[in-house]
Amino acid sequence: MPKKILVPCGSGVATSNMAAEKLRKVLRDRGIDAQIQAVDFRSLASLASQADLIVSVAPHGEAKYPIRVINGIALLTGVGLEQCINEIVDALH
């Protein structure tokens, strides 16, 4: 059963898909099988219970979720990407 990762943004359209595609690519390159879904923040609370991890490009939110949240801004900027991916891989294990 592949782990499920949610990547949220404002609309579930643009930024989240950008980050999700990038994440898909790097995880595939590392041979990790994960189901990655771009969603919007408004439905994140309802979806979080059925997922394993949130990789968010908007940290510092005060909202609490039942699963771990990792800062994924590096997926967009490319700065510190290695470290970010390592953190995600660790969290998946």
Binding site: G10, A14, T15, M18, G61, T77, G78
Partner: peptide
């Protein structure tokens, strides 16, 4: 790096 607005969506 200039990005789309959702980096502020945690507010």
């Amino acid at each position: 790096v200039g990005l789309d607005w959702p980096i502020l969506a945690g507010v």
